[in-house]
Design a binder for these strands. Sequence first.
DNA 1: ATGGTTGACTTTCAA
Length: 269
Amino acid sequence: MRIASWNINGVRARLPVLLAWLEERGPDVALLQEIKIPDEGFPREEVERLGYRVETHGQKSFNGVAILSRLALEDVVRGLPDAEGAGPDGEDDAQARWLEATAMGGKGAVRLCCLYLPNGNPAPGPKYAYKLRWFDRLRARAADLLATEEPVVLGGDWNVIPEPRDARRPEAWAGDALFLPESRAAFRRVEAMGFYDAIRLRRPFDAAGPFTFWDYQRGAWERDDGIRIDHHLLSPQAADLLRDAWVEREARAGEKPSDHVPVWAELDA
DNA sequence: ATGGTTGACTTTCAA
């Protein structure tokens, strides 16, 4: 099962690029973030025409996640299933950032969680507090999934630069919500639970990169001034099945690219 | 220090 995760920065703006990518690369499953559209606006028919099932958890203008799959999907859950999501202020429910489904592979099922973690800037402030609180909620859900002892993939835009080697210029990110010590610690806590960063399983000793995001500004791509913030975190049972993990860097060089590129994990499932 | 770019959607926010 080849699983790609990609922050497409707007499905409407990216539709020609997305459709061409699905045809050429043909992932079994695509976890998409920042679709920036309500469920009813998603270009479902164009994607289904290419042989993909479509599950979305969208909202108007911002955020929004989707799972596209050539494999059967079961047990779809929209939003983090927890108490705060149903809280009185409704704030957390209003942001569409989490979508789960089980993909039925030829050799076995994989629980897929497509996530778009809050950016958190400016930090400190209410947006950063929301990021850390959302991390707490993610960990609570991840603990329940871990207890199932099934293969689980937490894939998406984590908005965390885990280590200095995950940025071309780590010093430039020192005060940023993506690289603050609390953000990195929250990410490590998910790893400490027993989830494995797929890229680091395959490339444990790389001194720099691979990067998954280059800002549109300041010629970041031309200077390869990137960061790695899109990750597949694998439960132990998913890690046992890992065949390969890589970053599709060349997607940043095409016409009208997203500022993120797809990250891939191939499981023997 | 500033500014630079893109998307959604209108005058401005989010990233």
